[in-house]
């Protein structure tokens, strides 16, 4: 008998643990969307919010590399300040701002998502600071020998596109329409990074992503330019927010993004000047 007691206890415990597991599952089932879309909002300094002045920047996921670098430059130029970033899908960020998230600066990957915020009178006079162009991304060894946009219409070639609801998908539709091509993708991904992953892993033969993403992949995928990309250029607007907790820093940061130094960082990452 005494031997069985621990076992019973274990059973009880294991029964108890089932309940939190269910909760966790339900929560993650419903909530994972936003999480999955935003490749980790990283803050550059964990001690943020102490006595130091903090600037909070909401920026599109495709700006992760460039804005992190500009954030470091900003902190060096303004000793004592800390820049916190929230990177994610522009649409999600816009929703968060409209719902009252305390942000100082918003940099979006499309004018449409910025409009959500300006329509709510939460940002004034956005400025276009960069442009992004589509490229065909193929695995480094290009197994299907894709070399132009027309190849994507070949039913034997597996193609991944972004869903039309997100900026890179809208741009892809525009480019394909401009070329008069009908492409049936195997998947419509939720953001450009997910689309790129499918190419990196060789699950698809080709995809339409931004040139900046091809450069950021560091040689794991090959980018191919195509003329119709010129018809589907994506503008990136930036604005200070009217309810910014740190309006002075916000203005300074936007100035940095628009400065030659900012342009430099963006160009190196593959963005075009507006």
């Amino acid at each position: 008998m005494p031997k069985r007691l621990p076992r019973r206890l274990f059973t009880r415990l294991s029964r108890l643990t089932v309940v939190p597991l269910v909760l966790a599952a339900t929560l993650s089932g419903c909530g994972s969307g936003a999480q999955d879309a935003s490749p980790s909002g990283t803050s550059s300094d964990p001690s943020a919010g102490g006595g130091a002045t903090t600037l909070t920047v909401f920026a599109a996921a495709s700006l992760t590399g460039t804005f992190t670098e500009l954030g470091k430059t900003f902190e060096a130029a303004n000793p004592g300040t800390t820049v916190r970033f929230n990177f994610g899908s522009s649409a999600t960020l816009a929703q968060q701002i409209v719902q009252g998230a305390p942000a100082d600066v918003f940099a979006a990957a499309s004018p449409a998502t910025m409009k959500t915020v300006t329509d709510a009178s939460l940002a004034a006079a956005p400025t276009t600071f960069a442009r992004n162009t589509l490229q065909i991304a193929v695995p480094a060894d290009n197994p299907a020998k894709v070399d132009d946009l027309a190849d994507l219409a070949n039913p034997k070639i597996k193609v991944a596109l972004c869903a039309a609801q997100v900026p890179c998908g809208a741009a892809a539709v525009k480019a394909l329409d401009a070329a008069g091509l009908k492409v049936t993708p195997v998947t419509l991904e939720q953001d450009v990074k997910a689309t790129l992953t499918k190419v990196e892993l060789g699950e698809v033969d080709a995809a339409l992503v931004y040139r900046t993403d091809v450069i950021a992949s560091g040689g794991k995928v090959k980018g191919i330019d195509f003329p119709e990309a010129g018809k589907a250029i994506n503008d990136y607007p930036v604005a200070t927010l009217t309810k910014a907790p740190a309006p002075d820093l916000a203005r300074k940061f936007v100035d940095l993004v628009l400065s030659p130094r900012g342009r430099d960082v963006l160009t190196k990452a593959g963005f075009d000047a507006p």
Binding site: G29, G33, D36, T187
Partner: peptide
């Protein structure tokens, strides 16, 4: 998460309700 990553998202083939919800949210 696992579905959209492994199976992708295409209406009628792999687009389940949670995937449709997520994209509608955009």
């Amino acid at each position: 998460g696992a579905t959209i990553t492994f199976a992708g998202n295409f209406p009628g083939q792999t687009q389940t309700m949670p995937l449709a919800v997520y994209l509608a949210l955009e």
